[in-house]
Design a protein around this nucleic acid. Structure first.
Length: 87
DNA sequence: CGTATGACGTGCA
DNA sequence: GTGCACGCCATAC
């Protein structure tokens, strides 16, 4: 079963423990292509799987990044986990 | 198959 | 410290 880069990214995000966050670069590296963080954002944006805690993926700049359901929702979710980001 | 897109990252002014 | 522009990879159409 060959997991495409997209599948690997989703799997990596699913592996993120509660209260922990990874950067798009980290996820891309776990997916097997440390230079494909660009595609990671694309995949998550087109991600239709609500089981993926994509809200635990943030930018490397220290910003929160974006979210399908609204950046505001992502901030709230992370805040509930005890993680405060720089808006 | 080729083009355009994307929730980014880094560098420079 | 902030803002702008370029570059990068994979996916979707």
């Amino acid at each position: 079963m060959k997991l495409s880069f997209k599948e690997k990214v989703l799997e990596a995000v699913k592996r993120i423990p509660k209260g922990e966050v990874l950067t798009y670069k980290e996820v891309a590296e776990k997916a097997g292509s440390p230079r494909a963080w660009r595609a990671v954002g694309n995949i998550l944006h087109k991600n239709k799987n609500p089981r993926i805690p994509c809200h635990r993926v943030v930018r490397s700049d220290g910003r929160i990044g974006g979210y399908n359901k609204g950046q505001r929702k992502k901030i709230k979710l992370l805040e509930k986990e005890g993680i405060i980001f720089r808006i």
